[in-house]
Design a binder for these strands. Structure first.
Lengths: 243, 243
DNA sequence: GCCCGGTTCCAACAAAAGTTAAGGACGCGA
DNA sequence: TCGCGTCCTTAACTTTTGTTGGAACCGGGC
C-alpha cells in the first residue's frame, strides 16, 4: 500500500469527527511516514517501552491490552485502518499498555518530533489530534461501562456494534456483515470473561437467531434484537464535527 | 476558599506530572475563575449537556459516571482537589457522561473560550493540559483492567490504592489513613458489583485484617497484604515529569 | 494424504456474584 | 425525644461465570 493511501484514510477519518482547514490537510498530506508490515499477533509497542513514533494503521486490525500479575490479559480497544492507536505516546512517552496486531497489518510510522513541530506550526492540527485522543478516552469510558455493568451477551453485542459503526465509516461494512478477526480467547479478553464463557455466549446468540460469528466475520441475523441487546448509543464515538 | 488557593492546587498537581515554564505558571495564575459551591451528591454536568466551562475542584470529592438503559450506573473515576475532571469537554462539547459531587464541594469554573485563547497564545500550556487528559485516559485503561480482570476484593484494594497515591500528592494521606467518601452502593458502582457484594468484600477484607473502611475513611491494617492484593503499579498515573 | 497445533465446542462441577428480604445503626429534623 | 430515612449488615437462595477436561474441527506443512 502506497503511503499516500494511508494518509488519505487518516484524513477521511479525522474529517468525520472534526472540521479541518484546507491548509491543514495539505500539511497532513506532507507528513513523512515510514511504512512497515507486521504479521498477525505481533507486538508493535510494549508496556514499559519508550515510544519515539506514533503509528497509523494503513491496513489490518490491532488491539491494545494490558496484562496483570496473574497473567490475565484485558483487551482495552480494537483498532482499524485510519486510526492512530498510540497517539497518546506523544506525551506519555513510556507506554502503560501493549499495542499489537490481530491480523497481518501495514503500519505507517510518524516520529514524535515531526508531530511536535507540526503542532507548534499549526495549532489547528494539534487540536484535531487532541480531540482524537479525547474520543479515544470516550471509548474507554464506554468500555468500562460495558465490562462493568452489562451481562456477557450484551457486552459482546455492544463491542460488535461499536466495531461495526467504526468500520462503516471507512466503508468496510457489507450489509449485515463485517469483519471481527478475534479468536474466542481474545473475545473473552475483551469482554472480561473466560474463553469458555465467550463460547457459551456466542452459541447462545447464534441459537437465539440474533447474530452469527464465524471465522472472524460477524453476520447479523436479527438487527432489532441485536440493537436492543447491545443497548448501543453512538454518541460516545463523537463522530459528528458539529460538536 | 479564595480562588488563589485553587489555582495553587492545580499548579502543584500539574507540576508533579509535567515540567512547566515560569511564564506559563504566571498565565495559569492569571486565569479568571468563578467559584461555586455544591452540596454532596449533586450533578455538575450531565450526560448529553453541552459544556461551556471546565471545572477545577478546589475542595471536595467528585465522580464521573454513566447510566445505562436498565438504570445501572457505572462510576468511571474519582476526582480530588486540584483536578479538572471535565477538561475533555473543551473539545468534546456534548458530554457523554455525568460529573457529580460525592461530598460538598467547591468548584472553580474556567470558560472554554478563555482556555482556547490561552492555548493559542501558549502552546506549552496546551501540551500540559493535553497531557493531563492523556493521563485521565491512562486511568480509564487501568479501570477497565480492574473491572474486567481482577476478583472483587482486588478491585476494591486497587481503587483504594489508586486514590491513596493521588491523595498523597496533595498531602491528604495521614499514615495508613485517608478519605474515601463513597457509600457501599457507590463502591459497588465503581467496581462493577452490587452493593450487597461490595459489603461482603469489605467485610472480608476487614476480617482478614487487611484494610478497614469506616464512614468514608480507609485504614490500612496490613500494608503488605494490601499491596499484594491490589496488584498496583503506579506507572499508569504518569506522575513523573521525567517522562 | 496425514499429522499437528490451534481453535472451537461442549459438559459437569465449583466458585463468584446477583437477588431478595429483613433487621440494626446512625444521624437529622420535627 | 421520637420517628424517619439512609446506610450498613447479614442470611438464604438463584444465576452467572469460572474451571477442568476432553472431543471435534480446520488449515497448513510434510
Amino acid at each position: 500500500m502506497p503511503s499516500d493511501a494511508i494518509r488519505a484514510a487518516l484524513i477521511e477519518r479525522l474529517r468525520l469527527s472534526s472540521a479541518i482547514a484546507d491548509e491543514d490537510i495539505k500539511e497532513i498530506e506532507a507528513l513523512p511516514i515510514s511504512v512497515r508490515h507486521y504479521p498477525a499477533e505481533t507486538a508493535v509497542v510494549r508496556d514499559g517501552e519508550r515510544a519515539t513514533d506514533c503509528c497509523l494503521i494503513a491496513d489490518g486490525f490491532c488491539a491494545r491490552s494490558k496484562t496483570i500479575a496473574n497473567g490475565k490479559r484485558q483487551i482495552l480497544s480494537l483498532h482499524i485502518p485510519g486510526e492512530i492507536p498510540d497517539l497518546m505516546s506523544l506525551f506519555l512517552h513510556v507506554m502503560d499498555h501493549d499495542l499489537s496486531t490481530l491480523t497481518p497489518a501495514t503500519l505507517g510510522f510518524i516520529s514524535h518530533e515531526t508531530l511536535q513541530k507540526l503542532h507548534r506550526r499549526r495549532p489547528g492540527i494539534a487540536e484535531l489530534f487532541w480531540r482524537d485522543t479525547l474520543i479515544d478516552a470516550a471509548m474507554f469510558r464506554e468500555w468500562i461501562v460495558n465490562v462493568g455493568q452489562r451481562p456477557a451477551p450484551a457486552r459482546l453485542a455492544h463491542v460488535m456494534i461499536e466495531l461495526r459503526e467504526r468500520l462503516r465509516v471507512i466503508g468496510r461494512v457489507d450489509g449485515g456483515n463485517f469483519e471481527m478477526p478475534l479468536t474466542q480467547e481474545q473475545i473473552g479478553e475483551a469482554l472480561g470473561i473466560t474463553a469458555v464463557h465467550a463460547n457459551r455466549v456466542i452459541r447462545q446468540l447464534r441459537q437465539e437467531g440474533i447474530v452469527e460469528l464465524n471465522r472472524g466475520r460477524v453476520t447479523v441475523l436479527d438487527e432489532r434484537k441485536f440493537q436492543e441487546l447491545a443497548d448501543f448509543d453512538d454518541r460516545y464515538l463523537h463522530q459528528s464535527p458539529t460538536l
